[in-house]
């Protein structure tokens, strides 16, 4: 057990614990907040694993953007602030499948890696990753841009019902 291992263990415990609360809490808003904790712990994990850039992006995009987006969605759907009782449906099937997949994966991974030990690689700094992206992974990067554009336009179209009406009016005029 090195210091890294201890850190990983601690952060992992935090992440799993927060994750469990995300799926178990009866407060909608608190679920979002526990998610922040979980994602943050994961960012710490990344740091320990020397993936610096990923960690920062995690904090920026996930904690900064996605969770905020989710919380906005919670607000927009007028969710109650306090605890609500109808958040869950009977859970044995979910527990079975969720537990099965989680434990099953864990068993498989333990079976594959045992208690082996590796040295940490060179740190994944922004520079190194940038180099990798532009040396080796330009294509998906470019395609992802199309995807983002589509997501942007799509989200706008869906969120603004008046867009269709406008073109309908134009269609009517022509």
């Amino acid at each position: 057990m090195t210091g890294a291992d201890v850190l990983l263990l601690a952060l992992g415990a935090v992440a799993v614990g927060a994750g469990a609360l995300v799926v178990a809490t009866r407060h909608l808003v608190r679920a979002g907040l526990w998610l922040v904790v979980c994602l943050g712990a994961l960012a710490g994990d990344y740091l320990v694993l020397t993936a610096e850039l990923v960690a920062w992006v995690q904090v920026l995009i996930y904690v900064g953007a996605v969770v905020v987006l989710l919380l906005f969605a919670v607000m927009l759907t007028r969710a109650p602030i306090g605890p609500s009782d109808d958040l869950d449906r009977p859970g044995w099937a979910a527990a079975l499948v969720g537990g099965g997949s989680g434990l099953g994966l864990a068993v498989l991974l333990i079976d594959a890696f045992r208690w082996s030990r590796v040295d940490l690689p060179a740190a994944g700094t922004a520079e190194r990753l940038g180099e990798q992206v532009f040396r080796s992974w330009v294509l998906p990067f470019e395609v992802l841009s199309v995807l983002l554009l589509a997501a942007l336009v799509g989200a706008i179209v869906l969120s603004r019902p008046d867009i269709g009406r406008r073109s309908a009016d134009e269609g009517g005029r022509q």
Binding site: R89, A93, A94, V97, G100, S101, G104, L108
Partner: peptide, 19 residues
């Protein structure tokens, strides 16, 4: 949810079988 359950349970079962 049953559709999602189908996907996840299916994947789990297939994974289990393969394992």
């Amino acid at each position: 949810p049953r559709a999602a359950a189908g996907v996840l349970a299916g994947a789990l079962l297939i994974g289990l079988a393969v394992a």
